[in-house]
Write a protein that binds this DNA or RNA. Structure first.
Length: 601
RNA sequence: GGGCCCGUAGCGCAGCCUGGAUAGCGCGGCAUCCUCCUAAGAUGUAGGCCGUGGGUUCAAAUCCCACCGGGCCCGCCA
């Protein structure tokens, strides 16, 4: 609706000036406080072209504009031409938002996108850092989906790493009587094994031997390792679910090795993207010669296949990415793995059922920024394999890490203890519960605190841009006031409460004259579709958390200044329509950020 | 040696892609507002050479260059 209004204004400007409609359209921006609703910078453009004073041009141009019934006022302020939208526009806009309901801001169909996150090693609980990755990945999935992509959220389970071998060693030698949540218990045991490995050569040798057996597919050891990792992953996913983070499929590395590895290696070797090094320090390895594009690297050759025939991490990842992009014929067999609270089953490889997963038009990998270089290598190989289009849609969504004020979060040394995703949520819920005043049953309190506690964390983790390091402080992460998740939830609940008491909401009467606070609220709701598109195309869900906050702020102000239920005449109907659409839009926006909607607060 | 990211109020952040009207927000400080759709709220106020120095431009927090601080990367580890 706002788009159409801008289109109309652009048309009018174009008709009255030398600007093309497209230029006129891009000269439009939201007007700043007190200057109407939409501002045009067209005069600047014309001024530089005609070598005239922009203010003068604006003054001449404005009176000749005959926009549309949606514009009620055209004013000049220096070089700016400011448009004030009419009440007619506002009532039309409200009607449209209400009509579209859950589909408001929904984009056109765009193909399939695979989003990969968080790929945590399956031998420890998630800590705050993994949580940031997962929240980012889940939010991006939600946003892309609303923007029109068919999204598959995929988790890569590295069940062949040394970490798993170490945990298996611990399981076999340090006792296997888990207590408490399995991933926590296993994680603590891993810390112990890692410590021993540093000092005890025997432990190291035995763990390495186990790793070899796992990699070779030794029937007994592989089975044990798989059981261990699946059990750990199941425990990790309880955390996943507690934060409303969901997946389509879990791909185990052991299944990658079994199913597509040889084919992938073969494809690479037969291409001219990588070559077999005959001599020098990399003799016997298959490498990508990065010399041309990565000139200043200390070593411009990246090894993908070692001289013993095994693939490096980047080599394996490359093959997996080729599968995601539909470049390999091999297909995984799946089994239902976990029933998720959103009603959808998460599948895991290692079963017998075929599934149409993979073969994506776009790949988004949510991985720490320390992996920028290997991710670039993969993109470069895609290019050399002739997949230019795919390389363009191979996105590394790089993010910085969560650090503690004094140290880093480390799986091996156990600094995560006290900062696991589970402990964060528990503490957050506890703080939320403490704050609940009103008369609620214990059960209701628990429900509210769950939603608020979860919302506080999801919001605080998503609101900072991914490229910024996040120093974890309890007070900030779990903030319940001001710019925080609960603030948004509170605004939502207030709107809901009004609607519950009001009965059926009707459309705004066409003749109603909207006041300043009402206009601001509608205008902001009109921006939602544009925001969804922008957040999706830039892979920045924090744009939507910021939007949600701003929208809630506008609503809170409206709420404190104008009554709805006991408003007189047309105002009641108009405001109810306004509140109803606010509840819809904020609800949508919050669900895209993964902030749960509480029933009451 | 080279590359990437960050640097905006006491603290935590948004804005930078796509340059324009007084640089926004939260916490903390101070001062107000609950007989009224729940105050997890609203209002006001103090607080900023937008890291530094150059350049481009009619116009720079925003674009370009150099530098300074902090983090990360350049492995036959993952």
């Amino acid at each position: 609706m706002l788009f159409r209004a801008k289109k109309e204004i652009a048309k009018a400007i174009s008709r009255a000036s030398a600007l093309a409609e497209g230029e006129a359209f891009s000269s439009l921006e939201p007007a700043k406080g007190g200057f109407g609703d939409i501002a045009s910078k067209a005069a600047f453009l014309l001024a530089s072209r005609e070598k005239k004073n922009p203010a003068q041009i604006a003054a001449e141009l404005a009176p000749r504009l005959k926009p549309h019934e949606w514009v009620e006022k055209t004013e000049v302020a220096g070089p700016y031409i400011n448009f004030t939208l009419s009440s007619r526009f506002y009532s039309d806009a409200l009607r449209e938002i209400l009509k579209k309901g859950k589909n408001y801001g929904k984009g056109n169909k765009k193909g399939k996108a695979i989003v990969e996150f968080p790929s945590v090693n399956p031998n420890k609980p998630w800590h705050a850092g993994h949580l940031r990755n997962a929240i980012l990945g889940d939010s991006v999935s939600r946003v892309l989906s609303h923007a029109g992509w068919n999204v598959e959220s995929i988790d890569y389970i590295d069940d062949l790493g040394l970490q798993v071998a170490q945990s298996l060693w611990g399981h076999m030698n340090l006792g296997n009587r888990p207590s408490g949540k399995f991933d926590h218990w296993l994680g603590m045991q891993y810390v112990e094994v890692a410590k021993r490995m540093e000092t005890d050569a025997k432990v190291q040798a035995e763990a390495r031997a186990l790793l070899k057996k796992i990699e070779e597919g030794d029937p007994e050891i592989s089975k044990k390792a798989r059981e261990l990792t699946e059990r750990c992953v199941s425990a990790q996913y309880e955390t996943d679910f507690a934060y409303s983070i969901f997946h389509t499929a879990l791909i185990f590395e052991s299944d990658i090795v079994r199913t597509i590895f040889q084919e992938g290696i073969g494809l690479l070797k037969s291409s001219n993207a990588i070559i077999l090094e005959k001599e020098g320090k990399n003799a016997g390895c298959w490498v990508v010669k990065l010399g041309e594009k990565f000139q200043k690297l200390q070593d411009p050759d990246k090894i993908l296949v070692r001289s013993d025939g095994t693939a490096t991490y980047t080599g394996k990842d490359l093959i997996f990415q080729l599968w995601k992009l539909g470049k390999l014929k091999g297909r995984f067999g799946y089994k239902p793995f976990l029933k998720q609270p959103n009603g959808k089953t998460a599948f895991a490889t290692g079963g017998k059922n075929p599934k149409p997963f993979g073969n994506a038009d776009m790949v988004v990998n949510v991985i720490g920024s320390e992996q920028i270089y290997p991710q670039e290598v993969i993109r470069e190989v895609l290019l050399r394999l002739g997949h230019a289009k795919e390389a363009g849609r191979y996105i590394h969504l790089a993010h910085e890490h969560v650090v503690l004020p004094e140290e880093k979060l480390s799986g091996r040394s156990g600094t995560w203890k006290g900062f696991t995703a589970d402990e964060l949520l528990e503490e957050s819920v506890r703080r939320a519960k403490e704050k609940i005043s009103g008369e609620f049953t214990e059960d209701e309190k628990e429900k509210i605190a769950r939603a608020v506690g979860e919302g506080a964390i999801r919001y605080s983790f998503i609101r900072t841009t991914p490229e910024k390091k996040l120093v974890f402080k309890w007070e900030e992460a779990l903030s319940l006031e001001g710019n925080s998740g609960p603030y948004l939830q509170y605004a939502y609940v207030r709107a809901r409460k009004i609607l519950e008491k009001a009965g059926r909401a009707k459309a705004a009467p066409a003749s109603y004259q909207f006041n300043a606070e009402e206009r601001k609220l509608v205008l902001e709701m009109c921006m939602f579709p544009e925001l969804v598109e922008k957040a999706a195309s830039s892979f920045r869900p924090h744009l939507l958390s910021e939007y949600s906050y701003s929208l809630s702020e506008t609503f809170s102000k409206f709420y404190s200044m104008h009554h709805v239920l006991n408003a007189e005449g047309g105002a009641r109907g108009a405001r109810l329509a306004l509140v109803k659409s606010f509840e819809q839009v904020l609800g949508l926006s919050l669900s895209l950020c993964g902030v749960p909607l509480p029933g009451r607060m």
